[in-house]
């Protein structure tokens, strides 16, 4: 009989936390992390570089890479403004884990979306997955239901696999969302959940005002993200064939 792979690690009382947001279903990770960075006035402290850079952003006359690192107090955030495709997902997570080791991160919080076509917008749920048994208390204390069964595919699957095998404890938060369109309602639910987990109040007034514009502004990124996720879906399935009994 195999032993459980979930390791027991106690977190410090005020853990140094890294929020990880990348484009995925409903752009939940990107929208939520971007807002948290703005709301908490986190400082840009660096970038995760890929060589050669395929794209750069110009903001206020400054050249900025697409994957950036922010910090405020004991909270870090890594935000990607480009979809992470399958070919780059492993390198990307390895960079995140390497950064986490160097900066003594106690907890990684990865945020994403879960496609639920008939979800109740006024009562969206965020589900939690943990890589350490001790983290289940965080789910319980913050009333986050555990993601019990289902399938996660695309870059999220690669990221979760790498996080599961890394020495840094991690929580994945998946919120019910519209898979195909930017979903600020689901992103707002994610922000509320993160706010509880990191015990930091995040004012959502500005987010509510921007909600419709977020859907407009993120059309291009959503389309590119879907293209990346679609490409991976079209690859041959790795699901083993069922055996008839």
């Amino acid at each position: 009989m195999q032993k459980s792979k979930i390791k027991k690690t106690e977190l410090p009382k005020n853990p140094t936390t890294l929020l990880l947001g990348i484009p995925g279903p409903g752009l939940i990770g990107t929208i939520a992390t971007t807002y948290i960075i703005q709301a908490l006035k986190m400082e840009l402290i660096g970038e995760i570089e890929s060589s050669p850079a395929a794209i750069v952003f110009i903001d206020n006359g400054q050249i900025m890479g697409p994957v950036r690192i922010y910090k405020k107090d004991n909270t870090f955030a890594i935000l990607s403004d480009i979809p992470i495709d399958y070919d780059n997902a492993i390198d990307f997570v390895e960079s995140v884990i390497d950064f986490s080791k160097k900066n003594r991160i106690d907890l990684i919080i990865f945020t994403s979306g879960l496609h639920v076509p008939d979800r109740n917008i006024s009562n969206l749920k965020t589900y939690g997955l943990v890589t350490r048994e001790s983290l289940e208390k965080i789910l319980y204390d913050n009333e986050i239901p555990k993601f019990l069964s289902g399938i996660i595919s695309g870059p999220d699957a690669t990221i979760l696999t790498q996080l599961k095998n890394s020495p840094i404890p991690a929580i994945a938060l998946h919120t019910e969302c519209n898979y195909f369109f930017p979903d600020p309602d689901a992103a707002m639910q994610t922000i509320k959940t993160i706010s509880h987990v990191i015990k930091t109040e995040i004012d959502l007034a500005e987010f509510k005002k921007q909600s419709e514009y977020l859907r407009l502004q993120n059309r291009q990124l959503m389309e590119e993200t879907l293209n990346v996720m679609q490409t991976q879906r079209e690859q041959p399935s790795t699901t083993p064939p069922q055996i008839y009994k």
Partner: peptide, 18 residues
């Protein structure tokens, strides 16, 4: 990509659809 360029050529936003 198609979406952004269509927007600027025709001055009409192209909505996402599925």
């Amino acid at each position: 990509g198609n979406t952004l360029f269509d927007d600027f050529i025709h001055k009409e936003l192209v909505p996402l659809s599925h």
